[in-house]
Design a protein around this nucleic acid. Sequence first.
DNA 1: AATGAATGAGCCTTCATTCAT
DNA 2: CATGAATGAAGGCTCATTCAT
Lengths: 198, 198, 198, 198
Amino acid sequence: MLILDAARSAFLELGLDGASLREIAKRAGYTPGAIYSYFSSREDIYAALLGESLERLKQCVDGAAAGDGSPVPDTPVAASAVLRARALAFFIFYRDNPQDMDLGFYLFNGARPRGLTPELNQQLNGQLLATLRPMQEMLAALGLPAVEAEAETTAIFAHAVGLLMLNNTGRIRLFQQDALALFEHYLDALQTRLVARN
Amino acid sequence: MLILDAARSAFLELGLDGASLREIAKRAGYTPGAIYSYFSSREDIYAALLGESLERLKQCVDGAAAGDGSPVPDTPVAASAVLRARALAFFIFYRDNPQDMDLGFYLFNGARPRGLTPELNQQLNGQLLATLRPMQEMLAALGLPAVEAEAETTAIFAHAVGLLMLNNTGRIRLFQQDALALFEHYLDALQTRLVARN
Amino acid sequence: MLILDAARSAFLELGLDGASLREIAKRAGYTPGAIYSYFSSREDIYAALLGESLERLKQCVDGAAAGDGSPVPDTPVAASAVLRARALAFFIFYRDNPQDMDLGFYLFNGARPRGLTPELNQQLNGQLLATLRPMQEMLAALGLPAVEAEAETTAIFAHAVGLLMLNNTGRIRLFQQDALALFEHYLDALQTRLVARN
Amino acid sequence: MLILDAARSAFLELGLDGASLREIAKRAGYTPGAIYSYFSSREDIYAALLGESLERLKQCVDGAAAGDGSPVPDTPVAASAVLRARALAFFIFYRDNPQDMDLGFYLFNGARPRGLTPELNQQLNGQLLATLRPMQEMLAALGLPAVEAEAETTAIFAHAVGLLMLNNTGRIRLFQQDALALFEHYLDALQTRLVARN
DNA sequence: AATGAATGAGCCTTCATTCAT
DNA sequence: CATGAATGAAGGCTCATTCAT
């Protein structure tokens, strides 16, 4: 949609601060007022943008494991590989689209996220969960009980997010580390732990 | 100092956006112009606030291991305990003072962080590194080569940050997890890995 | 236009310093922000004002010689009279509208005039030149080579400007002189010189 | 004096707008408040600066004719040369020190000049007159009646000022003329006129 | 003579939003 | 659906000046 395209491009080039409603309108070829025929507030646009972004993320993550023939891996080795592929896809998506993470953290701030209706909030949360669930399933397939699989998924998510924050803000340079390498190291250790369990 | 107190309180209650120069001045009982006798810009105040915050963080982290008598742990077990204490102190500091992390990420954005002079930027980076270095030293004491110790420190930092982001934005509730428990779990696994190495 | 009227009146009564955007908005019955629907900056308003002023000037100068029947004077005497009429019209315009000259000198300051886009600058320069060119043509009609005609036009312009500055700042009183009389004296001498040439 | 030196340098580098009281104080190594022990207002400083500037101007103009032995030229040719030398000195002074002219026109604005006490105003006017009087005397020496000598002096002054304004604002480039050449041309014509008279 | 903290007014500009048309 | 003019609030910042010390 025209407005969302404009918003995405403004957002990409100018960041959150620069992507004012006026700027978005200008890029869409509309006047500011016209935007309100489609969205009821600026945050609404952001929410739509985030929804889109989460969808792209999901496709990216889901597609990561599409290479092998079978949708459901039937060996631990295969499951492990799929898990890894998905986690890496997640990581790389945000590494290469840092603005998408900014957006998420802008909107997902505090208990009652900025200007989001509870419905929208829930919907966006659902999209995020839907993206991560396949990893959780792989962990279950590798023998983890549901509770632990969920915890481990959260941990993977958190580790990725932490590294991405460090990477995207440039802070990681302080430590002279490479974010992706560290993430792979984390996945290695995780794999080792899982193997050790069995 | 009066202005910093005002800034901190404004910041705490209203967040970054709400802590305008006017608001800070109002809380300090000053007119906006008066602020410029003390700080040369709004970002300067933020920087001072962050500097203070990092100092509190450092004291918190350093103090965490002060319980045991010897400043330099002489056994792996002791070193491991000190590392854990420090990491937890770091984690808990930001869990209990979420605004301090916001501040850090606000200012530490991009290569030339917002409105910060390179000197200020470097100073603040230095404060952060100084806080984390003791952990790195413990890792070295535990037998890790310098390079790996630095990588592992970064990983701990990242994991903490990631969990904290999830916690502070409330997203962790989606996964029905407890941030601290997850962090302890991470430290457990790390400890296991370190032991396995030797 | 409402805003330009307001700007002109503010400018006239309060001078350049007093004609702030707020003051202009107030006089126009607008809020400050509303101005930005019409002009993109304060200097933009000034530029529009100057453009208008130069247009009035041009009409004034062009109209000065309209009295005689023929648009192209065919005798030296007629050409001389037209030249004189135009120069005097120019002079009297600024004598009677001193703020218009302030405006010009405010905006025409330095190589890249204050806040003016190069295009605007060029346009305004063009308007000024268009106003003076008819005088230059008369000088050419009186037998001056192009190069000298241009020099002489510049000299007339400069003499007028100098006298006007002295007049408008009141400094001319120091010398107990009348600006217009002096300008006519200058034109007399010029005419004599031109006659002597032939 | 320290403050005036600071003011002059600030003024030279930053122009009228940039030479704020604060900037002057900073350059003088004072705090803003301290300035008020010496000057009662910002305009007062400007006035002192202008006084100084006029003094330099006078020395420049007076010195211009010092080359020949006799202080009082006794032939028309000599008088004419002295007149020319002085006028050129005046012109070149302001061409090379454009800020000094800005200052003059800033303070000499309107009937009751900006923030100047009548006494100061009169004093500064006196300095200006004293600088121009020697030219007037030369004109008298060349046979002009007092009234005409004064008028002619005013005209020379005005022509110089006009050309300088055009030159200093860069407008003269529009006409592709050289200010000094035009001024010399003016002086030539004047000389011719004077000769013709006799 | 000088400080330095403070005032109060003002500056230009930007913004999300509204609403008559 | 869309405009475009307008609002009202706020933003960061600068300034000449004052005054207790």
